[in-house]
């Protein structure tokens, strides 16, 4: 799992490696990361109702995931890297 953007103050780095059981969802993975980095990460990535924040883009391999409840494995596709970008509108205007 790779974190890019406005997460570094929470994660301290870019890469996080974990193993999950078959049929896990993106939320399971996020829960694992939150358990590792703390609740601040959940606050950064998710809304209070558990949806992805408007400035978070999450990819499983090349596939963009819009809801954390999507499975990590999509059909036969192997789960590769999960990439999370927290985009910030720095210096707008």
């Amino acid at each position: 799992m790779h974190f890019y953007g406005h997460t570094r103050d929470v994660t301290g780095g870019t890469d996080f490696v974990t193993e999950l059981p078959e049929r896990s969802t993106v939320r399971d993975l996020l829960d694992r990361a939150v358990a590792h980095y703390g609740e601040k990460l959940r606050e950064r990535l998710l809304t209070r109702s558990g949806a992805l924040e408007a400035n978070v883009q999450l990819f499983v391999g090349e596939r963009q995931v819009l809801s954390p409840d999507e499975p990590l494995r999509d059909g036969l596709e192997a789960v590769g890297e999960v990439t999370i970008f927290v985009v910030s509108a720095t210096a707008g205007g």
Partner: peptide, 22 residues
């Protein structure tokens, strides 16, 4: 530069000379 800032890990940016008078 925004991409540089994003990669760096900061969310902080500001335009002036347009941004605030825009």
């Amino acid at each position: 530069a925004r991409l540089f800032a994003m990669a760096f890990g900061t969310p902080n940016g500001w335009n002036s000379g347009a941004g605030n008078h825009c």
